[in-house]
């Protein structure tokens, strides 16, 4: 069986996208000052985080809302909240 890429997996999910209302905002100053391991790049099951020109960028639309990054990242590095009511991942199986 061919394995799916993370993006292909996420594309199978149902999301109610809250355009223009990111629920994750990265504070790169904190990342640079306090984080050496960049755990967000390998712990996130949805590959939300990537490094572009030395900065951490959050592609929040595919977020599974598990909260792993809020535990793994230094305090204040992320402003992370659940999407507004009714938006975000919608599990049909769960």
């Amino acid at each position: 069986m061919n394995r799916l890429s993370v993006n292909e997996r996420l594309a199978l999910n149902k999301y109610e996208l809250d355009d223009g209302h990111p629920h994750i905002v990265v504070n790169n100053e904190v990342c640079e000052a306090e984080c050496k391991i960049r755990a967000c790049l390998f712990v996130c099951p949805a590959n939300v985080y990537s490094e572009q020109d030395g900065k951490i960028v959050a592609d929040w639309a595919g977020c599974l809302e598990c909260g792993t990054c809020t535990v793994a990242c230094p305090p204040q590095a992320l402003h992370w909240e659940y999407p507004r009511g009714g938006f975000g991942i919608l599990y049909r199986h769960g």
Binding site: M1, R3, L4, R9, L10, L12, N13, P45, A46, L64, C66, G67, T68, V71, I89, Y91, R92, H93, G94
Partner: peptide, 23 residues
Amino acid sequence: FLSHPWIASLIKGGKVVEYGAHL
């Protein structure tokens, strides 16, 4: 994990319908 031969034989022919995560 999913590519391990024993696992692969148990999920063979299946179609992934959802991917999720939880703490």
